[in-house]
Design a protein around this nucleic acid. Structure first.
Length: 677
DNA sequence: GAGCACTGC
């Protein structure tokens, strides 16, 4: 047992949550047809407010709807609107940040309406569209509605757009705010069918939403949240891992074994180490202490192991789940009584000056802390230990910085231009990204040849318009569009698909030597892109065999996704009438094609053995996951930079320096000039 | 010489 060197969580607060804590999406709906669907619907808290809500919503162009967990707003509001004929002349769209939520919710609602999924109620997510001409209530991912908007910026199919989970502020929802607002205005001006916009959120910060939508009224709904006790530490903790460990075992000694614990940590490595430590300690607990089962949970964990967190522990045994913030929103686990919140999260930052993405451990926001707290008390009252003092908590940021202010904006700017937004520089964002970030994105699009000035207006070039057709980062769309010139479109499609999903290479740390010897047969001395290509080709040769994947340390789930992505991209190429050729064994053309589209991501070996980027002369290193980690090629292009302890290049390809200069002579002349100055 | 929060099109 670790001694309580860290303070025991001490300060007892009244079971008072803030007025409206940021809460969670409804738990994934179980697939069942309730015997008394109607009486169940009527028993929801929202049902009492039905009449009032509808008379409000009927009169309003826009409304903000705040509802806590369990209010049933997401499943009921679309049905209410449909039942009284609001928006019969068009489809009611409900957006969700995640695919699984869109699918689960549409299933639930179509069950409640006693209809077949895909008829009256349907869903549209990438690779999967279950809607028909009859569909009047349509759940879709926010990214999907945004993509639809490119084809129809006024969203003419829809009479109502409901943006759900707005408090999560995903980049897609943030862009949609502006898109639906513009569509609403335009439709009004043209005297067309009005577009009703409903923003649904669980946030405390409603003023911003209301203000943005021209002072739209805010409607509140009651939820069904059980009380949660919150404890802070007396003193700041210098070691949150140690503090978490102490808390877990204190709870374990005091609480009945049927009550499970969820601990929020920052990343895979930390979680695996903590899992081991907990298991070791749990082996040597004193007699009479209940047993403990410790489970790690993070996104890259194989699916089968993720599923284990849903199994109830056997009687007399406590479940302890050590999780990243995947358990904050994406995965809901029943039966959690205790939350241990370290107050830390690993999150991405973006600096437009350097184009660098940083992945850093940092403090959560207050909203995030409330979100974590709310993960207890779903079925019954809960208890949350915050491993920081109340004073520290008061100093946390109120809200998490929206994604749109932490990202490279090249894709967003390309989409806005494709939507024919009059001026992307002054687009009406709810939270404006920094002008530097916007400028950097425009410059990147300019380098790729996607934009031009026409009558002092920034517009897409024909190439840029084609780029917007692909669901990819602009640089990858460009790579595909360049590929016919190098007669290697088949191979580029494969490489781009492989790069746009999570890695297909499975690297269990415990079996490192085994992985290395098996992987040898795929490794290309020309870099990661070509190594991935040879993994893909081998996979195709065995006909997508699961056993082969296991034997070769290939992540089968991600490989299947690659096949879907590739098919989608290939379809788009066909629609654009591109010739699709294979370069077969000629890798030179593939690398030339990559050099021609990724020239802004190039690095050269220096005399002292280090690498510097060609672009800004930034000191960089080859990422340890690269097959070129032990090599010193003279010149490479890379997929992106990641700043952790060092600045790493990820996913490399060996190229000829001459190819880069051929690809963009103006760009490099400019770079040379600035370098000399 | 040593590392990978989470989504989504």
């Amino acid at each position: 047992m670790p001694q309580a060197g860290g303070q025991p969580p001490a300060k007892r607060l009244r079971a008072a949550l803030p007025p409206r804590p940021a809460m969670l999406p409804a738990p994934p709906a179980p697939r069942r047809v309730p015997p008394h669907a109607d009486s169940q619907r009527r028993s929801l808290p929202i049902f009492q407010a039905r009449g009032k809500l509808l008379s409000h919503l009927r009169a309003l162009d826009s409304a903000i709807l705040i509802g806590e967990t369990g209010s049933g707003k997401t499943t009921q509001i679309p049905q209410y609107l449909y039942e009284v004929g609001i928006g019969r002349q068009g489809i009611i769209a409900v957006t969700q940040p995640r695919r699984v939520a869109a699918i689960a919710l549409s299933t639930r609602v179509s069950d409640e309406k006693k209809t077949q999924l895909g008829k009256l109620v349907g869903y549209t997510v990438r690779f999967d569209d279950l809607t028909s001409d009859e569909t009047r209530i349509k759940f879709l991912t926010d990214g999907m509605l945004l993509r639809e908007a490119i084809g129809d910026p006024m969203l003419r199919k829809y009479s109502v757009v409901i943006l759900d989970e707005a408090h999560e502020r995903t980049i897609h929802t943030d862009v949609l705010f502006g898109v639906v607002k513009a569509a609403q205005k335009k439709r009004k001006e043209l005297g067309k069918l009005p577009l009703k916009v409903i923003v649904m959120s669980a946030t405390m910060d409603v003023d911003q939403f209301s203000q943005y939508f021209n002072g739209a009224p805010v409607l509140y709904l009651e939820g069904r949240q059980h009380p949660i006790q919150i404890f802070y530490t007396k003193r700041p903790q210098s070691d949150y891992l140690q503090a978490a460990l102490v808390s877990v075992f204190q709870i374990h000694q005091e609480a009945p074994p049927s009550q499970d614990i969820l601990v929020f940590l920052t990343g895979q490595e930390e979680i695996e180490a903590m899992t081991k430590t907990c298991r070791d300690i749990a082996k040597h607990l004193p007699d009479g202490c209940p047993q403990m089962i410790v489970m790690p949970l993070y996104a890259s964990l194989p699916y089968s192991q993720q599923l284990r967190v849903f199994q109830p522990a056997r009687k007399g045994c406590r479940k302890v789940i050590l999780s990243t913030n995947i358990a904050e929103t994406s995965i809901t686990i029943a039966g959690i009584k205790y939350i241990v919140d370290t107050g830390m999260v690993k999150a991405k930052k973006y600096s437009p000056e350097t184009g660098l993405e940083m992945l850093a451990v940092q403090r959560v926001s207050k909203a995030q802390a409330w979100q974590r707290t709310g993960r207890a008390g779903r079925e019954d009252s809960g208890i949350c230990y915050r491993l920081y003092t109340e004073d520290e908590f008061e100093k946390f940021d109120k809200m998490t910085i929206p994604e749109i202010q932490r990202c490279n904006l090249a894709s967003v700017m390309l989409q806005l231009l494709a939507l024919r937004v009059p001026n992307v520089l002054t687009f009406d964002f709810m939270s404006k990204p920094s002008p530097d970030a916007v400028q950097a994105a425009i410059e990147q699009l300019d380098l790729l040849g996607a934009v031009e000035r026409k009558k002092d207006q920034l517009v897409l070039t024909p190439l840029g318009r084609k780029m917007a057709a692909f669901p990819l980062e602009p640089k990858f769309s460009k790579t595909i569009l360049m590929s016919p010139k190098f007669h290697c479109t088949e191979e580029i499609l494969t490489i781009v698909s492989l790069l746009s999903v999570d890695s297909v290479l499975y690297n269990p740390p415990a079996r490192r030597d085994e992985v290395q010897s098996i992987r040898k047969k795929f490794i290309s001395s020309e870099g990661d892109y070509l190594t991935l290509l040879s993994v893909y080709r081998a996979f195709k040769n065995v006909g997508g065999n699961k056993v082969w994947c296991r034997e070769n340390f290939v992540n089968c789930r991600n490989m299947m996704l690659v096949l879907d992505v590739r098919a989608q991209l290939r379809d788009i190429c066909v629609k654009l009438s591109m010739p699709i050729e294979s370069s077969r064994s000629d890798t030179g053309n593939i690398r030339r094609c990559l050099a021609h589209s990724l020239f802004m991501n190039a690095a050269e070996l220096q005399l002292d053995g280090t690498y510097r980027t060609v672009d800004s002369h930034q000191l960089v290193a080859i990422h340890p996951s690269s097959v070129l980690f032990h090599c010193k090629p003279a010149c490479v292009v890379y997929n992106g930079l990641l700043h952790t302890n060092k600045c790493y290049m990820r996913d490399l390809c060996v190229v000829d320096a001459d190819w880069l200069y051929d690809a963009a002579p103006d760009y490099f002349r400019r770079k040379l000039r600035t370098a000399r100055n």
